[in-house]
Design a protein around this nucleic acid. Structure first.
Length: 276
DNA sequence: ATGGTAGGTATCCTA
């Protein structure tokens, strides 16, 4: 369905990868492998866990990403965009009246608007009355839905990427039944994510390519002895395309083996190819 | 039902 039309005679091949690095300063070796083996044109990072002034630019200089937008803070959260292509009007958005660095927006050549997001994990208890982190997560998802609904414009060519910290489908977790009351897969979160997705008619790029019946994960906890053997994963990292951009989708995939690389993040890279 | 590991930071918080 996504190969029927060529949206532009001068379509630009564009590979975008999203990855929750879980501390960018510890991931030099993995960043080198992503640059060499996945070779994205644009690499979106979440949980860089570093303030802008201490971002490891020297470590990234050899990788061929001269255009960078860093939106970080000390210790927690933080997002960054590394690009081979110029970034147009890079900026950040704030949510829930907080100073958290969770959302960067950059323009790419061809009029593409790229949103790089880190949604709160939400703590342990899926109860907004007792757990302020869960309330924050639902508030941010609701705020994003409102924002994209209020600014909806069918011609906008939008890519939303990031760690959205919700696994929406039954096959996005290792056990739907056992995770129904575990934060990331509760019905209230899935509904909130769905409202945001529908607010702008976003297409879930990975599920355009991988059938919904097939299990698909992008995160495996550090707390399992053997992530590969137990395979208790979840799909928390996503790429969405606006309706105007969805026909440009050519491929999408998850670099599962990166979970087994030396000194891994608990998340692996998720990549899409567009003819944009 | 529980605890398991990793990262930032400076004593526990977050995931």
């Amino acid at each position: 369905m996504f190969c029927e039309t060529n949206p532009s005679p001068k379509a630009l091949p564009l590979r975008i990868t999203t990855w929750n690095a879980n501390s960018v300063r510890l991931r030099g070796a993995i960043l080198r492998r992503i640059a060499a083996e996945i070779r994205p044109d644009v690499l979106c990072l979440q949980e860089i866990k570093v303030e802008d002034a201490k971002f490891p630019h020297a470590m990234i200089d050899p990788l061929g990403y001269p255009y960078r937008y860093v939106h970080g803070q000390k210790g927690y959260h933080g997002v960054a965009v590394l690009s081979r292509l110029p970034l147009v009007e890079p900026r950040f958005l704030k949510w829930c009246g907080r100073e958290d660095c969770r959302h960067a927006v950059v323009g790419l050549p061809g009029g593409i608007e790229l949103h790089n997001l880190y949604v709160p994990a939400g703590g342990d208890e899926p109860d907004v009355e007792t757990n302020p982190k869960f309330r924050h997560k639902l508030d941010m998802l609701a705020g994003l839905a409102r924002h994209f609904e209020d600014t909806r414009e069918e011609s906008r060519r939008i890519v939303v990427v990031g760690d959205l910290n919700v696994a929406p489908l039954e096959t996005d977790v290792w056990s739907h039944r056992q995770l129904l009351s575990v934060v990331s897969h509760t019905s209230v979160e899935v509904a909130a994510l769905g409202r945001w997705q529908r607010s702008h008619g976003f297409v879930d790029a990975l599920r355009e390519v991988v059938p919904k019946e097939k299990k698909l994960f992008s995160w495996w906890s550090y707390r399992n002895r053997d992530w590969q053997a137990s395979d208790r994963g979840r799909r928390l990292d996503h790429v969405w395309l606006s309706p105007a951009l969805a026909p440009a989708l050519r491929h999408a995939g998850i670099t599962r083996e990166a979970r087994g690389w030396e000194a891994p993040s608990d998340h692996v890279p998720v990549t899409v190819d567009l003819d944009a």
